[in-house]
């Protein structure tokens, strides 16, 4: 596809955030941690992009970098994150501050740790609203109460005066969603929004997010390691491993016909109301410090062949919307298969 065609498609699909060749590396004394190695993602208006992967595969770094939260910590960020004609990764701290919380909002994993224990819920709200809009305190209070009501919290007036410790985890997570939505962002990043919550609460929070997607047409990046959450929520899924996207497909297609061995292994390892032994993925992910040439999944893969050890990770278009990064599906391999057939 030539670039003009891509641009056109982006216009059509109303891509709100376009992440191009994104890389995040952290130089340390022992070497460079290659956390993210050139990924491309598009977040579309009113759609949920699911990002799945094990811990340490670079999911959270991707999220934090989009909000400009990694730069000052020594991370070297390369690539482009285009949103409304601006490259989020190249903005200085003042410019990104104006966007952060307004056009792009985040829901963090641990609601208990994301709030300042010394300030009330109301103050948290006002801080966000008043740093982006020039409205009176009274107006912003009304706005806050309105949004707290939206996420189904009872007696919002009363809640505004309470402190985070007076809330349960599920309630705090809803407050966080309310704050994230108060500014009606174009993009919402949900970094493991339900991991620390109970199953019953998880279901309710996901319902809330699904309703938002319908109502406010927010584009969402939903990060999770739980395939159940992804199956329920996502429209498109990207599977991440060792800082690479190894498979990308619409959600039905990914679950019906997983191509990458890692995706297959992930799907097989979830307990699903059954007693037969679980198929765990043997071994563990290689250290991001010494990523060698070749497929990063090589050592844990049970479908490897000799081509894999010098395979350079890149996404291959398998189907109209289905991309996979595995040597098995490379052009040469396919030609070989056909030759044999």
């Amino acid at each position: 596809m030539n670039s003009a065609k891509v641009e056109k498609e982006i216009m059509n699909k109303q891509v709100v955030l376009n992440l191009k060749n994104f890389q995040a590396h952290l130089p340390t004394k022992r070497g460079v941690v290659r956390a993210v190695n050139g990924i491309n993602l598009q977040i579309t208006q009113g759609k949920v992009l699911g990002l799945v992967g094990e811990s340490g595969c670079g999911k959270s770094i991707t999220c934090l970098s989009l909000l400009g939260l990694t730069k000052e910590k020594g991370w070297v960020i390369v690539g482009k994150a285009q949103m409304q004609g601006k490259n989020l990764l190249a903005l200085d701290s003042e410019e990104i501050r104006r966007i952060r919380g307004k056009d792009i909002a985040i829901i963090m994993q641990n609601p208990m740790a994301a709030f300042n224990p010394l300030t009330t819920i109301g103050q948290h709200f006002l801080e966000t609203i008043r740093s982006h809009l020039s409205v009176s305190e009274k107006a912003s209070r009304e706005m806050a109460t309105k949004y707290l009501g939206h996420v189904g919290l009872p007696q919002p007036d009363k809640l505004m005066k309470q402190y985070p410790f007076q809330f349960s985890g599920g309630m705090l997570q809803r407050v966080m969603i309310a704050i994230a939505l108060a500014m009606e962002p174009k993009v919402l990043i949900a970094d493991e929004p339900t991991t620390s919550l109970d199953v019953t609460i998880q279901r309710q929070i996901l319902g809330q997010l699904a309703r938002l997607k319908e109502k406010a047409r927010t584009g969402m990046l939903l990060v999770s390691h739980d395939l159940g959450v992804i199956a329920q929520m996502a429209d498109e899924v990207a599977v991440m491993y060792c800082g690479y996207i190894v498979e990308r497909a619409p959600v039905e297609q990914l679950f019906n016909n997983p191509l990458h061995p890692y995706t297959r292994a992930l799907l097989a390892s979830k307990p699903q109301m059954q007693k037969k032994p679980l198929q765990a993925i043997g071994g563990q992910a290689p250290s991001l410090l010494n990523l060698d040439v070749g497929c990063p999944f090589l050592e844990r893969c049970n479908e490897k062949n000799r081509r894999c050890s010098h395979y350079k990770q890149k996404l291959i278009q398998y189907d109209h919307k289905h991309w996979v990064g595995c040597a098995k599906y490379s052009a040469e391999q396919r030609m070989l298969n056909h030759g044999l057939a």
């Binding site: 998880q202 309710q204 395939l227 159940g228 329920q232 019906n256 109301m273």
Partner: peptide, 13 residues
Amino acid sequence: SVLGPHPHFRTDL
């Protein structure tokens, strides 16, 4: 509350 394992069987949220 257990989420269905496949997008085809979406739970009513």
